[in-house]
Amino acid sequence: MNDSFDPSGPEARITPRLVDALYTEAMVLADEARAYFDDIGKDERLTLEPFARVGFACESLKVTTRIMHIVAWLLTQRAIETGELHQIDGRRPERRLGHATTSDPKVVVQMPDAAQRLISASSDLYARLQRLDEGQLDDQPIQSPARALMGRLERDLIWNRGA
């Protein structure tokens, strides 16, 4: 599920390619989570003890919430890169990565293996984006309009090559 680049190092910079790669990873994870929790997970949930069933339902909501926060943040990064939002707007609290509740390891260990993998993958992706989001708060220079235009041109070139 998750063999992707870890963008948390000090040399990591949020670029259109990084945002696109993370967005693809998030959408694949969202599709896997939906397929699991809507189908196979329903059958596996029935095999659990009553307390574990409640935990399973809570964890499925936590996975969904993490993924929603991830996708919203990535779309905000795209909007900043394309110039739809000014970089300074991206630092406002409502533009930051939303808070997602962490999973309780004591509950997760009771879940089926597939559920545990999805919980872990969503937590890992969220943690990587959280480090990127926090890195934006450092005293980094605000992106110039010319840099935003260059990012938009780069994105257009990438999209046109794939079409």
Rank of each mutant, 00 (worst) to 15 (best):
D89I: 05
G135F: 02
S144D: 10
T101V: 08
L22F: 12
H99G: 07
M150Q: 15
V63W: 05
T102H: 06
L97T: 05
L125C: 05
A26K: 11
F51C: 04
I40F: 09
E11N: 15
L75H: 13
R34W: 08
R131T: 14
F56C: 01
V19C: 01
L149F: 12
D6C: 11
G83V: 04
S120K: 13
N160T: 15
G9N: 13
F37C: 00
R34T: 14
R13K: 13
I80F: 02
V108M: 08
L46P: 00
P7S: 02
D43T: 06
V28P: 00
T102C: 03
P16N: 02
L61G: 13
A121T: 10
G41P: 05
R45M: 02
K42R: 15
A52M: 00
I40W: 07
A35I: 06
L129K: 04
Q130K: 15
I119K: 02
A52L: 01
R13F: 09
I80L: 06
I70N: 00
I14V: 11
G151W: 07
Q87S: 15
T76Y: 07
E84L: 13
G98V: 05
C58G: 11
A79K: 10
V109P: 02
V71W: 05
Y23V: 08
A52V: 04
C58P: 04
R155I: 10
D138Q: 14
L74V: 02
W73D: 00
R161D: 10
T65P: 01
A148Q: 12
G151V: 03
D6W: 09
R147N: 14
L125I: 04
P7F: 03
R78M: 08
Y36E: 01
A21L: 13
R155D: 09
K62M: 13
